[in-house]
Design a protein around this nucleic acid. Sequence first.
DNA 1: CGAGCGATTGAAAAGACTCAACCACCGTGG
DNA 2: CCACGGTGGTTGAGTCTTTTCAATCGCTCG
Lengths: 237, 237
Amino acid sequence: MRKQIEIPDCSSCKARINSVFGELSEDELEYWHSTKGSNFYRKGQVIFYEGNYPSGLYCIHDGKVKLYKIGQEGKEQIIRLAKAGDILGYRALISGDEYIASASTLEDSRVCFIPKDTIFDLFKKNMDFSLYLVKLLSQDLEHVENRMVNLAQKPVRERLAEALLILKETYGMEKGNNTYINIALSREDLANIVGTATETVIRLLAEFKNEKLIATKGKKIEILNLNRLIKVCNISD
Amino acid sequence: MRKQIEIPDCSSCKARINSVFGELSEDELEYWHSTKGSNFYRKGQVIFYEGNYPSGLYCIHDGKVKLYKIGQEGKEQIIRLAKAGDILGYRALISGDEYIASASTLEDSRVCFIPKDTIFDLFKKNMDFSLYLVKLLSQDLEHVENRMVNLAQKPVRERLAEALLILKETYGMEKGNNTYINIALSREDLANIVGTATETVIRLLAEFKNEKLIATKGKKIEILNLNRLIKVCNISD
DNA sequence: CGAGCGATTGAAAAGACTCAACCACCGTGG
DNA sequence: CCACGGTGGTTGAGTCTTTTCAATCGCTCG
């Protein structure tokens, strides 16, 4: 399954700038670092399961992770995508609930684990830290509410276009002179983000290709005409 | 518009048991009470608008409120329903953001207003209070995520059945020997909860009536067969 | 009494889904 | 090295759900 690996150093972690532990002082960061563990997950491995209870916080050192819920007939709905520096499972941890979603890796990833006690210590001691977590919760709520309205009101075509933009925002472009989105998702995963059937995704991607909005090479998607793709979304957020 | 009214007394407020201010000490409650204002809103009036910045917290003394966002073509999507004792606008207040949804009354309501400073004072001083707010955030996130999966995966028929159950849970039954759900929603509001067209709601309600699951009398809906209605939802939460 | 809004019904069209077949690629084992 | 099997991607056809548009109805309010 997962492999215990050498503990990456937090103070030099490139994820630090845009992550929770940017809020920590030197001492606190040392504390944080000293109590944490780190694991390597192969692509597709599960980090935690919906329904379990958290015993700490996960922090993505590098890699890509999806958070998803299982709905009707076992169909997966992807709730959120995470990248290096993002933390996972704080909702359940803070509120003392079980996980309401599962997390698994979209590619090989190194994920650190910070035990519950450390988090609660810091939560009590460092107001910036706790406010940061509360802000994260608020942002998540905002994002999910927006997506809810989209799911309720937008046709699949617009939702798919928007999903592509979100993927671009989240994972950026590959290095080099192309414009491939820096993530390789299966058509099924894409469908599970958009909330539709795999076949529908394939057909609509074909439409986008006809309209010269995108190009694909295997799982890699290239955005050819960003402006028109944005138009397709029918912006509202 | 809204009318300034005599300030209801918090210590005898029947909403106290299941609300934030159940966490407060006598002194704190006195503080809370002394800084608050109170307004009367006629049915359909707006309490706050999406996009504005909050200057305090709203607490429903009595009445019923919907929180909604405006989406495509101005179509409204109802995010959450609130009742006596519920508080509104804490997400935006805590995170310092603008409101991401609007709130308006579904019937005549008295709504108290507690200024920002009071809330932040208590947030800092009373850990139980702040944790309560964070828990509310977490619960909201959980509910919205569940609804998101439902919107993505369940057919309208199931979602409507579920909406009726949620209405029953939220607002309960009318007093007396009938089983009317204690809220009078327009078909359009119902559609905006479910995320569908008004006509579809009407047709599906007619189906439910044929199947003797419900009966209606104007806007009032009576649940005739709760168990079968639950079956229609295809439970998963 | 007439205007107007919400509720209802009907008919047609559109959007998406399901099912089934087929293809393409990839890794395995002979 | 190649045949095999399996998985994921693609395409087509048919069907079902849901939406849209239009018309009608019923009730309330001035």
